[in-house]
Design a protein around this nucleic acid. Structure first.
Lengths: 246, 246
DNA sequence: ATTATTCTGTTGTCTATACAAGTTGTATAA
DNA sequence: TTATACAACTTGTATAGACAACAGAATAAT
């Protein structure tokens, strides 16, 4: 496996996933504008040459991801991008910030480098697999030039040839995994705590030491069985809240 | 409307909701034990006299609510009750604590009483409706006799005759709404922050003032259109984390 | 003018069927 | 004993169609 990109995806993606991706693309790019109605299910059936059940499956996924809401007898409405920096479900940083119309930046403070997972906090999230090596990131994320999140990311060093050598596509990890490696991040579990900021975190987030920060321990499930991503995230929630739904 | 309970539900609940409820009941009561397999889709089809699509809709809902996981080619597995006091999605306090096999108690510190909503923090969650009066609770929730959550609940004073006069069924708000009033809590949105505990909260949660606590602002959607519940929750996450998934 | 009623288009629920694809155990062959 | 192949089971994807329930606009009745 020398090719810079992974093998072109021969595994055919299901039709409903294609529809889902297509609609998502049109929503985030503004073709379907916020607050507006999507085409009706029957129209989508014609557009994608699919049955209503298939179209509905795509739409239900978009509801689950928070892109649309639906109303009986009316239609599917494009959700307003969450006002309080919705760090919801699957959405990676880049996507969220773009969608919420704020100016976001990501600084890579360290990495990507190979290292072992020493953070014991992850133990309860990791089930059986004992991965040897991880690709490690330290990133600081800013909104309108004020630091909001400090994140440590661990990715098992498998399935990702040349990952370390090349920059992220558009600065987005999720997007890079999807485009270059056909790895789709599908869901997430997390543990949430409120903790006092330690010295490093406080400095980076420009807050006082010991002030309350949100601590998220995340495990992302991907389209590759047994391949997970792990993140430990400290959030300054003075200006922005983390919003979620279910 | 003098009858103590709401009219017997004449609105027929969809078949998939019935299946969903039946399976949920069997899971929480232990008929299907944790880590075990549910009957296959085809078996459930026979049991409930439904087609696979209908059964699958029920199963998908249970996945969304975190009761089961599914694996292609294998079956539906009953999820282990989340180790870290999973305060996930829709589950009310009672249900979570029972499921997680911990000894939980709820103290009603104040209420239910009628009052207006003065907490300005809810403003961003409330869209259009200006409810006049709310049924208000102050509750403290304990796990193994140590206080973990301090919660303010606001329920619009509509659709709930005699609510204040009678105790909650099995101490559970959600269960009371479902059984007595046929109101099903279906989903939730929330904003999450880390804040410093004020004096009252610190005292109740038995922690030091200004120590970090999790603050959750929740809006619950119900089966009645336009009828929402609101909660402001402070959590001590020293011992327990809030876990969620999506 | 206002209020009902009807109509049309939408999403919600459900049936019946088919084939694809993953998992597991069993039988067979090396 | 160890592979290999197969069979039987599971869930995943998809088609085609039907009727119910809801929203909103157009129409008819008052």
């Amino acid at each position: 496996m020398i090719s810079p990109y992974a093998e072109p995806s021969l595994m055919k993606t299901p039709l409903y996933r294609q529809i889902q991706a297509s609609l998502k693309e049109k929503i985030t790019s503004g073709v379907y504008e916020e607050g507006g109605l999507l085409p009706s299910e029957n129209e989508l059936c014609i557009e994608f040459n699919a049955t209503r059940m298939t179209v509905r499956q795509a739409l239900n996924e978009l509801v689950r991801e928070g892109y649309i809401t639906r109303q009986h007898g009316k239609g599917s409405t494009v959700s307003a991008s969450r006002k309080s920096l919705g760090l919801l479900s699957l959405k990676g940083w880049t996507e969220v910030v773009v969608a919420s119309d704020r100016h976001g930046k990501t600084l890579v403070l360290e990495g990507p480098v190979l290292r072992k997972l020493e953070d014991t906090a992850f133990k309860p999230l990791i089930d059986n697999e004992n991965h040897e090596e991880f690709i490690f990131f330290k990133r600081l994320r800013l909104v309108e030039d004020s630091p909001v999140m400090y994140e440590h990311t661990y990715i098992p060093n498998e399935n990702l040839p040349n990952f370390i050598k090349e920059p992220l596509l558009e600065g987005s990890l999720f997007r890079t995994l999807l485009i270059k490696y056909q790895i789709d991040v599908q869901s997430m579990t997390q543990e949430v705590r409120a903790v006092a900021a330690d010295k490093e975190t406080a400095n980076l987030l420009k807050i006082k030491q010991k002030s309350p920060v949100l601590h998220l321990l995340r495990k992302y499930k991907t389209s590759i069985d047994g391949f997970f991503l792990y993140s430990s995230i400290y959030c300054n929630t003075e200006k922005f809240a983390i919003s979620s739904f279910n």
